[in-house]
Design a protein around this nucleic acid. Structure first.
Length: 300
DNA sequence: CCTAGGTTACGGACTAAGGC
DNA sequence: GCCTTAGTCCGTAACCTAGG
């Protein structure tokens, strides 16, 4: 694997062959990848936002996206060009944001996202992907209402990286373990990092993209324990339920994966809606959550 | 700095086992 | 039978991790 790399022999003479590791600069060229099939393709778009901070009032200062086409086995067969925009937040950038991203006030001055182009590109794909989709989906739907309600996947949590032999889930560290380095924390570079990760073959024999799509396409179920007796609040909280005091009616709610749906119905019937539990309603409500609802801002 | 979720750590209560 | 100790279990709090 290292044959032909300049200086390899000299390095091996000083250090053992196994005592060091090379990382390749990430390069994701546009066009056909030369691998994978040709029929029944699916289109994905990877997005990344750089923002003015992590708080609720912070806004997008850079948006990048890049579409790709994949075959039914989750092998990426073609990669589109980059698109990215800077946007002026209307106030000075915090020092740590400038340090983290390298984006300065001068860089964003007077710039703005091309709403129409960004929304058109996002809507042209079958699904959107981001590393920590909860973060990016919230910012994108707030900034681009026309892109609300799309199908979302998360390269951070819809793939079992740990179970596949990777340590940690941060983008740069996953990429390094895949053998690459990149210019982190610029939206375009981070988008390419995600594409490179999605192309990885995992120990399962499938690509990371294939695993991510399988997880994301599977519905989850939102249980609302409407009318649960007040005294059961601790048991509900312990089981992962959260209180929604804004909804109507106010209730405890929880999302459950498809394979645990029956188990949850059984638990609710026995613990919350049995006669002895004195429920104030006949039963819970169950709502199907697909990748169109998942990771959306403002939970229930 | 924020948000959500998942894991770890710990105090308190309880149980099983050993010494007398 | 009684007391102490070690191990177990449970609920809760604290911590950790992704994202800028």
């Amino acid at each position: 694997m290292l044959d032909g790399i300049p200086g390899k022999d000299a390095l091996c003479a000083v250090n053992g062959e196994d005592d060091w590791r090379l990382l390749r600069r990430l390069d994701v060229p546009e066009g056909e990848t030369g691998v994978g099939g040709r029929v029944d393709t699916v289109i994905g778009v990877v997005v990344d936002c750089e923002t003015s901070g992590l708080g609720g009032d912070d806004v997008i200062i850079e948006l990048a996206l890049r579409r790709f086409r994949a075959d039914p086995n989750g092998v990426i067969v073609k990669i589109d060009r980059h698109y990215s925009w800077l946007e002026d937040p209307g106030q000075d950038l915090a020092e740590d944001i400038v340090r983290l991203t390298g984006i300065t006030d001068a860089d964003v001055a007077g710039k703005s996202i091309d709403d129409e182009a960004a929304v058109r590109l996002l809507r042209s794909a079958d699904f959107v992907c981001a590393h920590n989709a909860q973060f990016d989906r919230g910012h994108i739907e707030r900034r681009l209402p026309g892109a609300a309600g799309l199908a979302w996947t998360c390269s951070c949590s819809d793939i079992d990286w740990r179970g596949s032999g990777y340590d940690g889930r941060s983008l740069g560290w996953l990429l390094a373990q895949a053998g690459y380095f990149h210019g982190a924390h610029r939206a375009g570079d981070d988008v390419d990092a995600v594409i490179a990760l999605l192309r990885q073959d995992l120990p399962s024999g499938r690509t990371a993209l294939a695993e991510m799509l399988e997880t994301a396409r599977r519905p989850t179920w939102r249980f609302r324990a409407v009318g649960a007796a007040f005294e059961l609040r601790n048991q509900l909280r312990m089981r992962g339920y959260r209180w929604d005091g804004e909804g109507d009616p106010k209730c405890w709610w929880r999302d459950v994966p498809d394979e645990r749906r029956a188990e949850e119905e059984w638990w609710l019937a026995g613990q919350v809606y049995s006669v002895s539990a004195r429920p104030k309603a006949l039963g819970p409500t169950v709502e199907r959550i697909t990748w169109r609802e998942r990771y959306a801002p403002a939970s229930p």
